[in-house]
Design a protein around this nucleic acid. Structure first.
Lengths: 253, 253
DNA sequence: TGCAAAATCGAACAATTGTTTGAATCGTTC
DNA sequence: GAACGATTCAAACAATTGTTCGATTTTGCA
């Protein structure tokens, strides 16, 4: 019952088209498959998650996946886009609002970083969206090595990505285009693999634990995350004293 | 001929125990398998590289892998350790030398970063060690999702890792232990996934291109890499002006 | 209640995986 | 040149993968 509701609420868009199960103990097969897929994907990734593992976890017949979703890829595409579409919509919405209002001249970079990551933090606090596991899911998705997953993410969210790249370019005019793209790459890769790892997420929730309410919590996490990322984006190169220090190391090699 | 020599020189330790092939056109099977394995691993990773793909690429019989190496895992373990053992030895040697001499008080962090990455740059310039592809290999290895690869790297190089963590902790005493560990995680994850991606490596070789000799080249790359990483490690959190800027973003959400 | 559509089921499919087998071949040594 | 160990080979192995089939059951509506 409560179980049914909770699972179904993960994928509200699907619920509409589903028949209400008359039998109370029985959860809609489609919903159970989606939930099991997401759970196993977070643990094992796309390639290493077999349809048999999914259907066993969901307690449904093996053939149910192909019957309801067509193929493994279509199933995973649905799971991924279900979660990520709303996230990215919220991201650009926030970016639009910030650009309309105008950034703090002093802290544009920090504000852009906050804009990128706040929606994820908010979704992560919503149990209907996966709660704590949402960040894990996010990390998995962006770190997954399967060509299918990578192409899906690249195709579907390329437009939003360039929006942020352009915004950062405007905020960091002294940075060469290729230098900026390298550092943003850096930033996103670091974030996604960090989210995928257990200990890093524990640390973040530890940071948030000292806060009173939800807004406090987000502010605390962003206050820790922002400066670290901004520090790497704003770093100046080629200072002569640094050059000297590096040459001291090279002397030993 | 030249092909044979080149392949063999990738794995000099094995060459000793191998019989010299009398037939000139014939390259030692073991060596060809190792070279093919490395090539395909860089492209597809551990899981997605099948023994049939390896043996076809190497032009040898399928059974040759199990005959010469025992299993797929033993083969990959050999390929990985062949490349990484010398790298990590050189890393700690350099760290030892730097610690004996004493760091620049002002730029300890930059020097530590240089110590971590200089050996990889030097190996990447050695054609016998894989040349340009060595960095790609490194990125693949540390980003590979297979439990086998991850455990191998963790077990074998855990000791060296803690050496560097301790050194960084000493250089950044104001940073809480868990904060430091998060940021180092960040740094290494970013580096490895950046190395694995084609465009980032192109960028680095573009930076190096303007230099005259090898030492110049390493200095140029480290001068670009160091400040970015050091910037993220040294970032201060909780500055009130930043807090205000972040809250301006939260107001829209 | 009866009927047609939807859903579930067990079973098998073809393809791929790593591994093993036994015979054939090669290379060295006596 | 014979003999013996090392190596190579084609073939098959068992296990796993995604997918499909046809029969059976369940469901919603008349």
């Amino acid at each position: 019952m409560g179980f049914d509701m909770q699972l179904a609420s993960h994928f509200p868009a699907l619920k509409i088209r589903e028949r209400e199960p008359r039998n109370e103990g029985r959860v809609a097969t489609k919903t159970r498959i989606l939930a099991a897929t997401e759970k196993l994907f977070v643990i094992h990734g796309f390639d290493a998650t077999s349809l048999r593992a999914i259907t066993t976890e969901a307690g449904v017949n093996l053939a149910a996946v192909n019957y309801h979703f067509g193929s493994k890829e279509e199933l995973f595409a649905l799971v991924l886009t279900n979660r990520l579409d709303s996230l990215n919509l919220e991201r650009v919405r926030l970016l639009d609002a910030l650009e309309a209002k105008g950034f703090d001249a002093e802290h544009t970079v920090e504000q852009l970083i906050a804009t990128m990551f706040l929606p994820a933090l908010q979704l992560a606090r919503n149990p209907e969206r996966g709660g704590d596991d949402f960040l894990k899911f996010l990390g998995r998705a962006y770190a997954d090595p399967s060509p299918f997953v990578r192409e899906l993410l690249a195709d579907r969210y390329a437009a939003q990505d360039t929006r942020f790249v352009q915004a950062f370019a405007k905020a960091l005019p002294e940075l060469a285009a290729q230098d900026l793209s390298m550092r943003l790459h850096f930033m996103l890769d670091a974030i996604s693999s960090t989210l995928a790892s257990e200990d890093a997420r524990k640390l973040m929730s530890a940071l948030a634990a000292t806060s009173k309410d939800a807004v406090e919590e987000d502010a605390a996490v962003l206050a820790h995350l922002g400066p670290v990322l901004a520090g790497s984006l704003r770093a100046k190169v080629n200072q002569s004293s640094q050059q000297r220090a590096i040459r001291a190391v090279l002397a030993f090699a």
